[in-house]
Computed example of a mutant assay.
Amino acid sequence: MQSIGERLEEARKRKGVTIREAAEATKIRGDYLNSFENNNFQINVPDIYVRGFLRSYCNFLKVNSEKVITDYNAELLGEAKAAKREHREFFGRMELQHTPLVNEETKSAPKGTATIDDDKLRAEEEEDEKVSFLDKIDKEAAIKIGIVAVVAIMFLLVIVWLFRTLTSGGIDDGPQANTTGLVPTQQTASAPAETAPAAATETITLIATGDVRVSVTERNTGKVLLDYFPMVAGQREAIQKSGPVKIDYTAGENLQVEIKGTAYGTGKTGQNYSTIP
């Protein structure tokens, strides 16, 4: 069975392009593509970027991206199981190291030599058992403390995520509301006093003022309208949406959103997101 890297390399050669040409077409660094074809996905970037790069590269090569992402997830799961097994074996070796050795049977002492004090020997054995027991308790306490710390961190992250979700706003249908921090970049003519009822779907336009990658997801259905799409300065991309959407971007300073003829800046820099109702 071919690995992910072998499938990507075969598809690229079948398409008749070099790594450099593929990198220019997909806006993905050539060394990342070369690592993918060598079945190496440890490229020192967050996992969400690895998935996005793989999906974009598969779409460029006309390869089934869903199958590749599924195989990538399976490979990550296998690595996690191997790490867990190695962790368990490591603690098993620690227990073996703390297991006291069986005392050899003492030989009868020859005449004229001092005999071993049984009470002293028993006291030493009890001391060794006590030290071993304390070491075991320390190890179990450390494991429990580690588990509690991980759970506490995860709980804190969930609270932060819920707080950001509840406090993050969006742009109202009217051009004056701007609760997500998007900043109008140009002003259009005033709308008439009475407007027609809003349609079931609405078109928004993404405008790139520099290099940026954008993902657009419907909040109500989870449907992905744009998946980690690369854009360059001057590029426009129209999106048909139904209901509120979340826009994730890698460089907020290089993105504008045009809504009903008005262009808005994100008001943010670097990797971030905005919500539009």
Rank of each mutant, 00 (worst) to 15 (best):
I28E: 06
Q187D: 08
R29N: 15
F229C: 04
L162K: 12
G169D: 05
V158C: 07
E89T: 00
V183H: 07
A149G: 05
A200E: 15
V50W: 01
K13D: 02
S65C: 08
S56F: 01
L156I: 14
A193G: 06
L226E: 11
L96F: 03
K120H: 09
D211E: 15
I48K: 13
V257M: 06
G234P: 02
T18R: 02
N64K: 07
T180Y: 10
T275W: 04
G169L: 07
L77Y: 05
L101W: 08
I171P: 00
G261L: 08
N272M: 06
I48D: 12
K120M: 12
I276N: 00
I239R: 01
D118E: 14
N272S: 15
E127V: 03
V245I: 15
L182Q: 07
I48Q: 10
T26P: 03
E129M: 11
G30T: 12
V63W: 01
Q187I: 15
G265L: 03
E140Q: 11
R55Q: 11
A251R: 13
K15P: 01
G252D: 02
V148M: 14
V224G: 06
K136S: 02
E9L: 14
V245A: 02
P277K: 13
S3C: 05
E125V: 13
I19G: 08
V17T: 13
L182I: 08
Q271Y: 14
G210E: 05
V68P: 01
G170F: 10
A123M: 09
E66Y: 05
R88C: 02
E6S: 12
D173V: 11
I204Q: 00
A191L: 15
V212P: 00
K241A: 06
L255V: 04
Q240W: 00
S168G: 14
T209P: 00
D71K: 07
A199Q: 12
V150R: 09
D248T: 11
K27N: 14
N59W: 08
K246A: 14
Q186I: 04
A196P: 04
T221N: 05
A25K: 13
G112W: 04
E95Y: 05
Y249T: 12
P192S: 11
F36D: 02
Y249G: 05
E127N: 07
E9F: 05
E24G: 04
A83W: 01
K81F: 03
E129R: 13
D172M: 08
P230G: 04
S242Y: 00
F163T: 13
R236G: 03
I28R: 09
I207S: 01
I4G: 05
G222C: 09
T26W: 08
R236C: 04
L134P: 00
E75T: 08
E258S: 10
E253H: 06
G267H: 04
S215I: 08
D211F: 10
E253M: 03
E10M: 04
T167C: 05
R7G: 03
V232E: 15
T115Q: 12
L226K: 12
A82P: 00
P197I: 03
C58E: 01
F91L: 00
R122S: 13
A238K: 14
S108M: 12
F229E: 15
E105P: 11
L225F: 07
M1G: 15
I43H: 03
T217W: 01
I145R: 15
R122K: 15
I28Y: 09
E37L: 06
T180M: 12
A189R: 11
